[in-house]
Amino acid sequence: MLRKLFPHPYLTLLLIITWMLLVNQIKLGSLVLAIILGTIIPIITGPYWPDRPVLRNPMAMIGYILVVLYDIVKSNFIVAGIVLFRRNSTLQSKWITVPLDLRSPEAITVLAGTITMTPGTVTADMSGDGRALLIHCLHAPDPDAVRDEIKSRYEARLKRIFE
């Protein structure tokens, strides 16, 4: 019964929080409307996501978000430094292949987003069988170090959260 009423509890929670942020004040009326919307929208759009994403360890997500936020700030300074003080002729931009151990689509999506937001790397593409990511590095004298850092710093954590 509860499962039928709330097919996607995380989506319901996200919708309620988003609606409360949009309304911009905490009133009982808007909270009731948020709960109604958060119940109806997942049921109506249910056919579009038949599977539930599996979150093994939701609390580890907070630690992961903090690590990523720190890396975003750090990456901004690194990229700004490269843009301002490095001559284009000394720039060593490279394509890197990162083989994936992750299998669930949500985990791969989060990993790709994280790579784009962090130091000097952009996710460009994925292999046809979903076993490798194509990454472009702005300045990477040592491509293997970048790949190892991605695998140890982000992928290992995501594996603990999702799989």
Partner: peptide, 29 residues
């Protein structure tokens, strides 16, 4: 960023030396 990169790869495929996938399939784009 991902979509722009894909559009760029699609438009200038011959000019970009992308690294190999490590399997027998090519990149999705």
């Amino acid at each position: 960023a991902n979509l722009i990169a894909k559009a760029h790869l699609h438009s200038f495929r011959a000019d970009e030396k992308t690294s190999p996938t490590g399997s027998d399939r090519d990149w999705a784009t």
